[in-house]
Design a protein around this nucleic acid. Structure first.
Length: 186
DNA sequence: TACTGGATTCACT
DNA sequence: GTGAATCCAGTAA
């Protein structure tokens, strides 16, 4: 275990979701014994696709916090993990895919596959692999469920693309991936 | 109270 | 490429 690595401070998440979504690429996600490098993110603010568009009990955390986990249940069977952002505003970044680095055996059991590329290459897949559930919703980022700092990636290593198939009435959220990485979704 | 649709995944064709 | 699985949050009435 590298004792020099540092958790991202709470204040780090106070910025805009789009900024955070890019900056999270290459950082290390840890939950319990499992770790992985974040390779794909998606920024949500007040756009049409975002839960943050309307203030509801569920989306309250997007409005009132930054540097917290926002975990929600969707499609009747899947969980998705977000970090809340924006000190003065609404924002969250969905962690869509990670490259597994530790706890791979556990992930393989939970995902029922040994195909490394298929363990965490999607928002619901990584929640299943890491065993992230609603129990983690609204927890502050840190401790056993945290993100470790890493050098910022150069801009030419990042691919930015608008989400596909979204309603076109308001600003688009943005998806960010690491160029050439094999562990992203799709 | 009832209904609708969804930030997905996977099996099947 | 297509559709089923599955159930909760949000909304309408």
């Amino acid at each position: 275990m590298d004792k020099k690595r540092k958790e991202l401070p709470h204040s780090w998440y106070a910025r805009d979701a789009v900024e955070i979504a890019q900056a999270l690429l290459g950082k290390t996600l840890r939950y319990g014994d499992c770790e992985g490098i974040i390779v794909e993110t998606e920024a949500y603010t007040t756009d049409a696709a975002s839960h943050g568009k309307v203030l509801t009990p569920r989306s309250r955390i997007m409005h009132e916090t930054y540097g917290h986990w926002y975990v929600y249940f969707t499609y009747g069977m899947h969980f998705c993990a977000n970090v809340t952002t924006n000190k003065d505003g609404v924002g969250a970044v969905l962690i869509r895919a990670v490259e597994p680095t530790k706890g791979i055996e556990r992930m393989e059991k939970r995902r029922r596959t040994t195909e490394l590329r298929n363990l965490c290459s999607g928002p619901a897949k990584l929640c299943q692999a890491f065993d992230i559930t609603l129990a983690e919703n609204e927890l502050p980022i840190g401790g056993a469920f945290t993100i470790y700092d890493a050098p910022e990636l150069p801009a030419d290593e990042i691919i930015a693309s608008p989400r596909i198939g979204i309603r076109q009435d308001t600003e688009l959220p943005w998806r960010f991936t690491i160029k050439g990485n094999k562990f992203t979704s799709r």
